[in-house]
Computed example of a mutant assay.
Amino acid sequence: MAKLAFLGMGVMGAPMAGHLAKAGHDVTVFNRTAAKAEAWAAQHGGGHAPTPRAAAEGCEIVAACVGNDDDLRSVCLGEDGAFAGMAAGSVFLDHTTVSAGVTRELAEAAKAKEISYVDAPVSGGQAGAENGQLVIMCGGKAEDYQRVEPVMAAYAKQARRMGEVGAGQLTKMVNQICIAGLLQGLSEGLLFAQKAGLDGEAVVDVIQGGAAGSWQMVNRNKTMLAGEYEHGFAVDWMRKDLAICLAEAETVGAPLPGTALVDQFYKDVQAMGGGRWDTSSLMARLQKLAD
């Protein structure tokens, strides 16, 4: 069992850290809002610290799952940042979905302190974190990945090294690009079924086992047909991720016209007051257009 720190007690980080504690690891947590860290420690029996540096001191592995590039920098760098408390030879394991640029920037800062760095964004949402069924795509040296893989097993159904530092974030971008297109297509299909007078659930039951089937179809069709959008990853966060995808696409020269269009559709959903709705709420936009 390892001595670990986990930075970020949001809807993803708190259950992930909980799985680590349940697996027998010695876990100390940090959260910007200290009350969340204190509540986690009271529930799981681990420790909590007032700064990332204090949480990281003496730990073999320091994991993080925070909000965005700036949040990640704030918990890593500076006098109270995690890197200041980490010893040479320890590993920083980042589960935040951020840009490949900030990943490489922080990996260089870690390297200067002889700290290893693995970028490991996750897919599976809050339910995946709570059930320990996340899919994790990782970037980093093979030996560093091998050190963190047994730890991630506490909350992952699948983890894989995709290449050097940054490859995990690039793979997560592919994931988000695919989800955006799938959900737009699913929204259009379900709305068409409704407008054509078909039983939407019956339609899905028939087609989900064929070429049109997807996780989104199987897990979101009923709530989409019911107009319920409180079941997962929020539109605000999806737009953050798609902005990262579109910026990286410019860098690598990959045209993403469909993704750019769906990003604008999500902007429309935000204007409807749906920033905290889940990503399947693209259907709400179509229903508004149809009414």
Rank of each mutant, 00 (worst) to 15 (best):
G274A: 06
D291Y: 15
A35H: 12
A120R: 02
M217C: 13
K195S: 15
A234N: 11
K157Y: 12
Q133Y: 15
I115K: 00
A39T: 09
P50V: 12
C76F: 01
G78W: 06
P255A: 09
T279K: 05
A88E: 14
V204M: 07
M9E: 03
A14F: 00
Q194P: 13
A243I: 05
Y145W: 14
F92R: 00
A17P: 02
Y145V: 08
A254I: 08
V11M: 13
E248N: 06
A49E: 03
A127D: 09
L7V: 09
Q287S: 09
K172R: 11
A211V: 15
D26G: 08
S116N: 11
D70G: 13
V204I: 08
D71Q: 11
G101T: 13
A243K: 14
A260F: 08
A2N: 08
A243R: 10
D263E: 14
K22Q: 08
L261Q: 11
I207P: 02
T97S: 12
R161A: 05
I61H: 02
P150C: 05
D199Y: 13
A159V: 08
A56I: 03
Q184I: 07
H44C: 07
E105H: 04
G128V: 05
A87G: 07
I61C: 04
R220W: 01
G258C: 10
A290Q: 14
L7W: 02
D94H: 02
D71C: 14
L225T: 09
A290G: 11
G132M: 05
E228R: 15
D205E: 15
A37H: 02
K22P: 02
A107N: 05
L186H: 02
F233L: 10
M173P: 01
G13C: 03
I136S: 01
C59Y: 05
A5V: 14
G18T: 10
G210W: 14
A112D: 08
G168K: 01
C178Y: 12
L183V: 10
E57N: 03
H44Q: 10
D291R: 15
G258M: 10
S214H: 07
L286G: 08
M16N: 01
R160W: 07
C178H: 14
A156H: 01
A109R: 03
L186D: 01
